[in-house]
């Protein structure tokens, strides 16, 4: 199922891809980038889901969550010097029913256009 352009998607940003100063473009390069749909699960619940399933201390710590609108992502793809029609497809998995993928191959150059457009969320303060 192709996700509507109005939806926003999230990308977990872990310590292998973020060092406190820079984010790695390889967050988005390549084929089949994993994302998650904000429409189905709240941001707060996404923190829990990502911490449980994506984070694995001490090797990999969840640092941030990046958010982007699907329509915005698609516009970036169309406006890129080598235009590409990006889609986001729902691929629910056991641990995340909101899981989705970007099936197309995103080049490094395009990934460098995507990163600045992310809305970055810090971890919520622990209660």
């Amino acid at each position: 199922m192709v996700i509507d352009a109005k939806e926003n998607i999230l990308r977990a940003i872990c310590s292998d891809k973020y060092d406190g100063v820079r984010m790695s473009p390889s967050l988005f390069t390549g084929k089949g980038t994993s994302v998650s749909r904000l429409e189905l699960i709240s941001l707060e619940d996404h923190w829990d889901i990502f911490r449980t399933n994506v984070q694995k201390p001490p090797e990999r710590l969840l640092k941030l969550i990046g958010e982007i609108n699907v329509g915005n992502l698609q516009k970036l793809g169309r406006d890129y010097k080598v235009p590409i029609e990006l889609t986001v497809e729902a691929v629910p998995v056991d641990w995340n029913l909101a899981h989705a993928e970007i099936p197309q191959t995103i080049s490094r150059g395009l990934a460098n256009k995507i990163l600045p457009e992310l809305v970055i969320h810090e971890p919520p303060a622990t209660k």
Partner: peptide, 21 residues
């Protein structure tokens, strides 16, 4: 600063795990 560099956060991004401390 490159446009996608993030504002500095108070928390260190690289932490030695408890097991290593």
């Amino acid at each position: 600063q490159p446009s996608f560099l993030l504002p500095s956060f108070s928390r260190h991004s690289y932490e030695v795990s408890d097991a290593l401390q």
